[in-house]
Amino acid sequence: MHRIKKFLFKNGPLLATILIFFIVYAIGGQLYPAMRKPQVFFNLFINNASLLIISIGMTLVVIMKGIDLSVGAMIALTSVASAALLQQNFPPLLVILMMTLMGILFGLTMGAITHYLKVEAFVVTLMGQFFARGMAYVINRSSITITDDFYKFLALTKIHVPFFENAYVYITSLVAIVLLVVTFIILVFTRFGRTVYAIGNNEQSALLMGLPVARTKLIVYAFSGFCSALAGIVFSISLTSGFGGYALSMEMDAIASVVIGGTALTGGVGNVFGTLFGVLINGIIVTILQFNGTLTSWWTRIGVGILTLIFIGIQSLFYVRKKHT
């Protein structure tokens, strides 16, 4: 009994997130019977693959008490750049490799500026956002269609979900899920992962504990850059095009998902499974509005906004209580 209580207490915010997801889902199922089809659930993974990927990167950054505002613009830049390269008949695998490298380098540069020049991550990544978004429009002002066969193959290959008839996801959804599992393992089971938590709690302490603070910070921002490039590739695959106006303010959706998932903006606390449910909650609200059909899609924003506020409230209640016990 005591152990159950302890478990509930320790994982309170995460459990609350999961619970809310299922409640919202159940409400949707009541209102619109068509929502009860399994495929509706799997569509969440199809439609939100990019959001999930950048949110995973964002989770690490936020646990480390940082922020990365450049990820949405990086999706746009990656989509335009890869579309432009494919138009010039670059081999698709080379394009994917180049884009990932670009993302890593971009993140690494921002991390280095934050750490070595001691500039706030907020400012550095905001400049990163302007740069990436601007660069995307410099490459091409309008949308470029992707006609590459390999990209089309990636976009259209359905993977059937075991145990569910006629239910499927796309390769891009699998990429997101694999990334999620790998990141979970990294966070919980590696020295690097634990160092991320340590830095988020108290950077000065982590330094005095002899932990590799500089290296870890750089890797985390590089990882977020990598995730944003990967998300950009996924984005361009699912829309088979690239455009500088894609993924506008998607970084904010990612931050909201991370917070709803129980990761504290004050650093040191959180995990990626919470983030998954944060993304799913975002997705399920969108789905309900789509089924409704009459409400404007801006209600999603209002819903997510309210939920995020509620979650920040719950978190701080939990942490206040923890401090006193």
Partner: peptide, 19 residues
């Protein structure tokens, strides 16, 4: 100068933890 969010075990061993 330790990290209060981590467990006592991690605070003692982080950086040299058994792997």
């Amino acid at each position: 100068n330790l990290c209060t969010n981590l467990s006592v075990a991690e605070n003692i061993l982080l950086g040299r933890e058994p792997r």
